[in-house]
Design a protein around this nucleic acid. Structure first.
Length: 878
RNA sequence: GGGUGCUUAGCUCAGUUGGUUAGAGCGCUGCCUUCACACGGCAGAGGUCAUAGGUUCGAGUCCUAUAGCACCCACCA
């Protein structure tokens, strides 16, 4: 059946995907004898819609997956979504606020969670349909969600095991607190940003004195309400006499000790540091060292609490203003200056975090990290690109306790029950009915939920049924590749390795591939506020999923940025169109064939088969090393610059075309079919559409998804033919160049003479018709004696020359200049080569192959130099 | 403060262990409405590989220093 004139992705892609689903292409059989290959999709957050980063993940993983499926593996690509605790809760809260002006607190926990579940269902539906639009061959029968019952079981199991092993504990400590989200955060969830601030110097009067005071510098005057000491460096001469004395806390009139501690930097500020153990991580440590205790002066919303006396009820910001004002009034203020400093912000909502002392749950990450570090050191797990290994080690070697409790409603409730009678904790997988210590039934579950990343950390196996020894778990664990953005190396990848190894005793995957971050065309981070977000669906809508996918693969360099631009995707759309058009052409001429029948004696066939074979090798090498961009480029180059530009152009020559048709030669079709299969993982839709229209196929299967992925065969290498055709190409190209430089009209046929050794001419002669057609020559004379340079121009190739009558020429001045430059370049290159050959050290030290190469190079250059000199003389440049 | 990268054509980037005359896409210039394709064809211009040293027979590739840029981690009030 002929292909329609244009491939219209908008019309075709949906139904092609539907067909794959109907055929069950994406679902592996659990009891297959085939070797398994598994990737779990990094579960997108159910906060909204997919962005370009997801599209990149989907594309790269689908390329790996589809290729392995075609290579006969039992392939599982498992889709899922993440409940994304803080992020989703925040989105839904905002939504509620905007829609009905209600807060979660007025709704209550149960009602609010209902709303979040509704949101989740909607968002998940959107995400699924987007992944389908992109063409991702995910096994939807195994769709998972991080709050699924089976995942919950895994989460509890993991928690209980770690608790029993002493690796999870509850402790009162200073943690990062987001007053807007009203929850504790892990260190990773706090982003330090430089903000403009002020540095205030305040008087702390000596107890009993009206004149003597310490000048204390701070960026946060409001925290003086919680000061429990002033610290100076033990070696600081200025303050020796103050140590052990007491000072009066301004405005509050409490008396606090002056202590000495090495932590204080005497060079910084005034050398006297106020200590607020309740609201500063360092002060907390200092306070602990000196037994100062803790004074918490903010409530969960970061308003001053009842410990703040007159300031009670004020927000942090208002309290600061008020306190500064009062200090000035009371003559306790000395001076202030502008001072930029780093302030921690909530990763999710950008609120300034407030360090706060509270009871939280922690994981002893340093214990889990040890085997996880070793796994990468011993290369049991490879991280690619390799430089990320260093980053991984750096973080893992300095890992700190991981705060896993969150004061949220949306998430996995921590499986701990407190007994009202004996105050002890019951930690269990199954919800207990009574306290395991005193049998009391007065128990209540911990209100806190777990950090989202705790459940994500189990994803490679919690989705497969662990801790049950299910068929899926046995077949598909460990996974093969974990592919994701480098931004979640610590958040997610490191934790999967730690938890995976601890829980299952095995590495969760053998390869981590970290892709670059998607940026806009100027390299700027995409953000809604900047308005530079490129929506993958919008691009797909205009140019098709295949174009976007090919673009993403093409640009997945091993750098850190991937810039998305319309022009770039257009180029890839053009490539898809090229494929479509050449397919149209091939089917037009060879679509009637019923079987493969290749004329292996045809040199053009040998050449393209050899080139195809080389391409297969390059694609395989590139994909095995996750160089998607390189694989995409090889395919692009082969299809466009070799198959279309030369093979098809050769085949179009009248005699050739007729003879191909007469013989029923199917090479053009067969090579196209292999290209389709090679390209299918990259551009699944258009390749499937064309494949469906082929008159016969290499595979009896209904879908190209099941067809075999082409593999390199060393018996399809035709080195000699490649050289021979390469020479033909050069003859044509040089002739065309000459025509171009002398402005010979395209319609003007010219006569050529080809001069060279008999052997060379014999190799060229089979291509006479093709040379004539593509160089637009009406005749070719084959000569072994050199034609007159009086009447002809000579184009010198490595081992032969093309002669063209001077009668075709016009103005030569530009050409002379160009050739002079050429001559200069060649002479320099020749001089370099010759100096190598006369250099004894080079001749002694370089390997034989290199020396032979240089010798050959020198010979070629010599011939070329002579040729250009001759040519210059011929066209009148001395 | 610690760490990791980057600097190659106008732009975005390749260039695997040092080895022949440094590549691609886009963009640019000229010509061509040739029967698959103007989302096309043909041809062309364009780079002292950031700088300065060094190692080597040979350096875009290795070493040292310098400059500039980006990112990550970190509690300097």
């Amino acid at each position: 059946m002929p292909l329609e004139n244009q491939f219209e992705p908008q019309k075709r892609e949906k139904s092609l995907y539907q067909q794959w689903l109907e055929w069950g292409v994406f679902t592996p059989s659990a009891d297959s004898k085939k070797k398994p290959y598994t990737i779990v999709l990094p579960p997108p957050n159910v906060t909204g819609v997919l962005h370009m980063g997801h599209a990149l993940t989907g594309t790269l993983e689908d390329i790996l997956i589809r290729r392995k499926r075609m290579q006969g593996f039992n392939v599982l690509w498992l889709p899922g979504t993440d409940h994304a605790g803080i992020a989703t809760q925040m989105v839904v809260e905002r939504h509620l606020q905007a829609e009905s002006k209600t807060s979660r607190h007025t709704l209550g926990r149960e009602k609010f969670l209902e709303k979040v579940w509704e949101w989740k269902d909607k968002s998940q539906g959107t995400i699924i349909s987007q992944l389908k639009t992109l063409g991702c061959s995910l096994d939807w029968t195994r769709l998972a969600f991080t709050l699924d019952e089976k995942v919950s079981v895994a989460v509890r199991e993991c928690f209980v095991r770690l608790y029993n092993d002493g690796l999870i504990y509850r402790d009162e400590a200073i943690i990062q607190w987001c007053p807007r989200c009203r929850t504790a955060l892990s260190d990773l969830e706090v982003k330090f940003k430089e903000v403009k601030g002020r540095f205030w110097k305040i008087k702390y009067f000596l107890e009993g004195s009206q004149t003597e005071f310490l000048s204390v510098a701070t960026t946060r005057p409001e925290t003086l309400l919680g000061d429990l000491a002033v610290a100076v460096h033990p070696g600081d001469a200025r303050y020796q006499k103050w140590i052990g004395k007491k000072v009066r806390l301004p405005l509050v009139h409490r008396f606090i000790p002056v202590i000495s501690d090495e932590y204080v930097d005497p060079e910084f500020g005034t050398g006297a540091l106020k200590i607020t153990p309740g609201h500063d991580v360092n002060d907390y440590v200092v306070g602990k060292r000196h037994g100062l205790g803790v004074l918490t002066i903010f409530d969960d919303d970061a308003r001053v609490n009842d410990k703040g006396g007159a300031y009670c009820g004020l927000s942090r910001e208002k309290a600061r203003d008020q306190i500064v004002e009062d200090l000035k009034k009371a003559d306790l203020w000395i001076e202030e200056e502008e001072r930029p400093h780093n302030v921690g912000h909530c990763d999710r909502c950008s609120t300034v975090v407030e360090p706060k002392v509270s009871a939280q749950w922690f994981v002893k990450a340093e214990v889990l990290a040890k085997p996880a570090i070793e796994a990468v050191q011993t290369k049991k797990i490879r991280i690619l690109p390799e430089e990320w290994e260093k980053v991984y080690f750096e973080w893992m070697n300095n890992i700190r306790p991981w705060c896993i409790s969150r004061q949220l409603w949306w998430g996995h409730r921590i499986p701990v029950w407190y007994c009202k009678d004996c105050n002890k904790m019951t930690v269990a997988v199954k919800t207990p009915s009574h306290c395991q210590h005193c049998k009391s039934e007065k128990i209540s579950q911990e209100e806190d939920v777990l950090d989202t990343w705790f459940s994500s950390g189990l994803w490679p196996f919690s989705t497969l049924g662990w801790p049950q020894e299910t068929a899926d778990f046995k077949t598909f664990y460990p996974n093969d590749v974990l592919e994701t953005g480098f931004d979640i190396l610590f958040f997610w990848v490191a934790r999967m390795i730690m938890l995976g190894m601890r829980m299952t005793g095995e590495i969760p995957f053998h390869t981590v591939y970290l892709h670059p971050m998607v940026r806009d065309e100027h390299g700027q981070k995409m953000s809604k506020t900047k308005g530079n977000v490129v929506d993958p669906l919008e691009i797909i809508d205009r140019m098709g999923a295949d174009s976007l996918r090919f673009f993403l693969a093409w640009n997945a360099f091993h750098g850190r940025d991937l810039r998305v631009s319309d022009e770039g995707v257009e180029g890839c759309r053009n490539f898809a169109t090229k494929l479509w058009n050449v397919s149209k052409f091939v089917l037009m001429h060879f679509g009637h064939l019923k079987q493969s029948q290749q004329d292996k004696s045809n040199l053009t066939n040998q050449w393209i088969l050899s080139r195809l074979n080389e391409t297969k090798k390059q694609v395989a090498d590139s994909l095995e090393t996750y160089r998607f961009f390189e694989a995409a480029q090889s395919l692009y180059h082969f299809l466009w610059s070799e198959y279309c530009d030369w093979f098809i152009e050769f085949a179009k020559e009248k005699n050739e075309l007729e003879s191909r048709k007469a013989m029923g030669d199917s090479t053009a079709l067969d090579v196209l079919e292999e290209v389709l299969r090679l390209l299918h993982p990259f551009m699944p839709f258009v390749t499937e559409a064309i494949w469906q229209e082929l008159p016969y196929r290499s595979s009896p299967e209904k879908s190209i998804s099941w067809a075999q992925y082409p593999e390199y065969h060393k018996d399809s290498v035709f080195t000699q033919t490649e050289e021979q055709v390469q020479r033909v190409i050069e003859v044509i190209e040089k002739t065309r160049t000459l025509r171009g430089t002398h402005k010979i009209a395209g319609s003007q046929e010219i006569g050529l003479s080809l001069w060279g050794e008999e052997k060379i001419l014999q190799a060229l002669k089979p291509f006479q018709d093709k040379i004539q057609k593509l160089a637009r020559a009406d005749k070719i004379d084959w000569v072994t004696s050199r034609p007159s340079s009086q009447e002809n121009l000579e184009i010198v190739l490595k081992d032969c020359s093309v002669f063209m009558s001077k009668s075709y020429l016009g103005d030569l001045s530009q050409e002379i200049e160009k050739q002079k430059k050429q001559l200069q370049d060649k002479k320099e290159a020749l001089a370099r080569a010759e100096s190598k050959l006369t250099n004894e050290k080079f001749m002694g030290g370089a390997p034989e192959a290199v020396k032979a190469g240089v010798r050959k190079q020198a010979e070629d250059l010599k011939a070329e130099v002579a040729g250009i000199e001759r040519y210059l003389r011929e066209i009148g440049g001395t």
